[in-house]
């Protein structure tokens, strides 16, 4: 079989491989990496690629000269460019065909995929802002609160209006409200937020953030967003407790493996559910953010799809 013949067969194989893979990705949940409203496009693409593969399969030999379109002449079926050019362009085409198969192999090896807790730190966790623009930040950072003075964080806000008749808001609802500029409807509302437990320097003693990864289009635009939570009573999430106990069993913090063990347990990203009242408050960096106050917190099971897909267009 000539190189041109192999390249011709490779064209059919590569298009068919992507066609089958897109269907397989849909069936196995791999398409969770993109927003649900775009997933049907992958299935449509799979069907069209099947049609393209059939057309390529019945390509006549004379038409299958396999130019990579960069050989210095037009894409003309009767170019008569000679065996040397044919072989060179076939090799280029084979390289392209191998390259398009690499993502399929990586996905089969990787499984469903997703972002780790480490990626959250790299991306930065954005707490839901209670004001937009430079006014969201205090002119000078607010002083750090002591453990015994949590009330320092309170800022004058509208009187607490608890609307018992309205259903509790979720993280997705709060995101939609912020997007639509309906901040005035958030203050004092009851919220139930499910997400991963996350702690950084914005949290005071006993406080933590509940965060979710929001995907607008695909994982490349994923943002880690969340709310600061002030629990009503002390709360230690499941994974952290295990990490603390495991770390305590080690004699020295510097003992080999101690840090790796802590990190491995932290990687599991404990899931929690917090129920409380939403208030606009300043965090320890002086930013105005929404905070779940008087929160009752419990350990929770991660949902089937850990990503959150806001529907901004629908909200509009």
């Amino acid at each position: 079989m000539t190189l041109s013949g192999i390249a011709r067969a490779g064209r059919v194989a590569a298009t068919l491989a992507w066609s089958f893979f897109l269907v397989y990705a849909w069936m196995t949940g791999r398409l969770m990496l993109i927003h649900p409203s775009y997933r049907w496009l992958s299935l449509a693409a799979a069907a069209l690629l099947g049609a393209v593969a059939v057309a390529l399969l019945f390509e006549e030999e004379g038409h299958a000269h396999g130019h990579a379109h960069d050989e210095g002449h037009a894409h003309d079926d009767a170019c008569g460019c000679g065996a040397g050019c044919q072989a060179r362009s076939a090799r280029t085409e084979l390289a392209f065909q191998c390259a398009v198969l690499i993502p399929i192999c990586v996905s089969l090896w990787l499984g469903r995929g997703g972002l780790s807790t480490q990626a959250m730190t790299t991306r930065g966790v954005r707490l839901m802002p209670a004001a937009q623009g430079p006014s969201a930040a205090a002119p000078t950072p607010a002083p750090l609160r002591g453990a015994d003075s949590p009330a320092d964080a309170w800022v004058p806000a509208s009187p607490a209006v608890e609307e018992e008749t309205q259903p509790p808001l979720t993280l997705s609802d709060i995101h939609s409200h912020l997007l639509l500029g309906r901040r005035d409807e958030l203050e004092g509302r009851k919220v139930i937020v499910l997400g991963q437990h996350f702690v950084d320097d914005r949290c005071g003693p006993g406080e933590f953030c509940v965060v979710r990864i929001l995907v607008t289009c695909c994982l490349a635009d994923a943002e880690v967003m969340g709310l600061l939570v002030k629990p009503k009573s002390a709360f230690t999430p499941r994974g952290t407790q295990e990490a603390m106990e495991a770390a305590n069993r080690l004699r020295l913090p510097e003992e080999p493996g101690a840090m790796e063990l802590k990190m491995r347990i932290q990687e599991q990203g404990p899931w929690v559910e917090a129920t409380g009242i939403l208030r606009a408050m300043r965090d320890r960096r002086g930013q105005m953010i929404y905070t779940v106050t008087d929160a009752q917190v419990k350990n929770a099971t991660p949902p089937a799809d850990i990503l959150l897909y806001p529907r901004p267009m629908m909200a509009w």
């Binding site: 992507w18 897109l22 990705a25 791999r30 398409l31 990496l33 993109i34 775009y38 496009l41 992958s42 449509a44 693409a45 069209l48 690629l49 393209v52 993502p103 990586v106 996905s107 990787l110 995929g113 997703g114 972002l115 780790s116 480490q118 990626a119 790299t122 289009c217 695909c218 994982l219 490349a220 994923a222 990687e267």
Partner: peptide, 26 residues
């Protein structure tokens, strides 16, 4: 973990782009 983050984002860009590349090619 770092490779998984990279590969997941890489695949998500491709999943998102492939239908549009095909549309353009058609």
């Amino acid at each position: 973990t770092a490779f998984q983050d990279f590969a997941s984002i890489w695949l998500s860009i491709l999943f998102e782009a492939i239908p549009f590349v095909l549309l353009g090619a058609l």
